[in-house]
Nucleic acid binder design. Structure first.
Lengths: 335, 335
DNA sequence: ATGAAAGCGCTAACAT
DNA sequence: ATGTTAGCGCTTTCAT
């Protein structure tokens, strides 16, 4: 491994000068500069050791992003929002995928924090709060995205699912729907529970209207919609409206029902949540709930950069509201 | 920033002992061990500085993966294949997304290599060969996935698109199709050109049959299918078979055509390439070409781990063949 | 059973 | 215009 010392030796200068030539951080006589450059060439020196540099300066120009499922269409826009600003500001982004694994998450975060990265954006719930606290305590900047617990004294951003879900329920009720099926996410995950309770709450505001609902627990993953679709086909009584916790599930269910000659929205109305790109490309286009994921990503990195710039600013927090996007998968309840 | 020195000071031991207590690398008397542990607790020391450690040992237990588009459904399985083995072997994985950007790619790779990561898997074409060579020369292990150039003296894996595409063309021809439309990827990208020439070659094997084809250049990205679909609707003469360079595009086109009352496969047959999960969930399920992405990912990391273990083994290379998956989006050519 | 000391590759304050 | 020197936080050899 060739280092400044080797270059300095050949060019007959000090390592200081080598450093200044490479980083262009102070004037170096043209003659000397030339010698250094030649020595570098001769030794094939191209990539300075960033470990040494970071160790010394305490800066890495790198930020980490921890997500729980790279296949989840929830993330791409979040990532894009983060990337664009990171790139513009000259930061490198290391992505870590936990695959919903607690162990992996811990290892990822430790690996990131252990490298004294400038900051970490955590957009994967289900991570040990104690660990987060530890990392935070060693001075690594952290921003939490869509995090379950508020008021933990760290920068955080999250979605308020209530308005979007309420809008959807109200809309369905206004179209005469009284018989609902709600497809939840895994009930171990906090955001799943939050979505479920928003749904319940919204429905219960219509107590006077004799509404009944049933809940099926899903995984939120691709492929699960088809499975749940089959389950629905086996139900004694087909609901008039199916409210899903994410678009992927809604689309899967829709396809399965359509394949079995159920007409959407004439026979059954169905709604999603996420407003992924695909949701407007399917047939019929899906009525869903929009989350401004791009914006939450952008804001997350802005928060982080603020924090990197000045550790002592006060805690930054922001809520993003959600709203219904009307498309074609909802109609009046069948008689 | 608290370090071994601080702990050593409080515990009245040397930094050597601190190191051995933390890493359990040699016997330390129970009394001493206790004192060290207490000092750590007192100082809230939890995360050793991996920069220092890596700098000294030359090992990081981390590998980097560079991809060009996180939203491209080509990647998830590749990543999964890599992740599973990485995790099992105790490696941490840093993902870098280049967004097809040359600058970003360079920065990413430098960031990875500069940290003297144990190895890098590059699954993003369009990266400067000179840079790759540089990184390779500083001794960072590299594995190339689906790389355009062969015989560059580095470990590499790639897909042979020929058999799959030939199978599809032959199948379509056998069903009476004579009027083709091929949707290519961006013709700046090598894998796009390769797919295109495989198509041309396969068609030209049927010279005797008066086959005509037209080519439209697409982006391979989600959303582009719809746009191309509209373009197709405006064509003077609708082809009988549409062969697409990826599934996402095929699905988008299919939806657009169906929305305009064109029946698939009765009016037009359509095929994809990638065999993404979604391709069997759409209506009709898409006939496509399978790439064993999971396997290529697995093999990539196996290659890399071999290389990390022993730098001097000979170049590893592997080709993965492709094959057609028959589903419902293809039928006899309309009269 | 424990410690002293050297050093990984780099930067930056201070000196000349 | 260039060099000396100390040191970032850790590991490891060699001593005792």
């Amino acid at each position: 491994m060739v280092s400044y010392k080797d270059i300095a030796g050949i060019a007959k200068v000090s390592t200081t000068t080598v450093s200044h030539v490479i980083n262009e951080t102070r004037f170096v006589g043209p003659e000397t500069r030339k010698r250094v450059r030649e020595a570098m060439e001769q030794l094939n020196y191209t990539q300075p050791n960033l470990l040494a540099k970071s160790l010394l300066t305490g800066r890495s120009n790198t930020i980490g992003l921890v997500i729980s499922d790279i296949r989840n269409p929830f993330y791409p826009e979040v990532i894009q929002g983060i990337e664009e600003i990171a790139q513009k500001e000259g930061y490198n982004l290391f992505l870590n995928n936990t695959n919903y694994g607690k162990e992996v998450a811990i290892r990822s975060i430790k690996a990131l924090a252990g490298r004294r990265i400038d900051g970490i954006i955590i957009a994967a719930s289900q991570i040990d709060n104690k660990l987060i606290r530890e990392i935070f305590d060693i001075g690594v900047n952290i921003v939490l995205v869509d995090w379950e617990e508020k008021n933990i004294g760290m920068d955080n951003l999250y979605f308020n699912y209530k308005p979007g879900i309420k809008e959807v329920v109200d809309y369905l009720v206004s179209l005469g729907h009284r018989d609902f099926l709600f497809i939840s996410g895994p009930l171990g995950i906090d955001t799943s529970n939050i979505r479920l309770s928003c749904f319940k709450e919204s429905v219960e505001k219509h107590q006077d209207k004799m509404i009944s609902y049933k809940i099926i627990e899903g995984t939120l993953r691709i492929g699960n919609g088809k499975k749940i679709g089959k389950e629905i086909l086996g139900l004694k009584k087909m609901p008039t409206a199916i409210v899903c916790s994410n678009d992927i599930t809604a689309i899967g269910i829709m396809n399965e029902l359509i394949s079995n000659n159920i007409k959407i929205p004439e026979d059954v109305s169905i709604t999603g949540l996420d407003n992924i790109r695909l949701s407007e490309l399917v047939n019929p286009p899906l009525t869903t709930i929009e989350l401004d994921r791009y914006k939450i990503g952008q804001t997350a990195i802005e928060f982080l950069l603020n924090r990197i710039e000045d550790k002592d600013i006060k805690v930054q927090s922001k809520v993003f509201n959600t709203k219904m996007i009307k498309r074609k998968s909802v109609a009046k309840a069948r008689k």
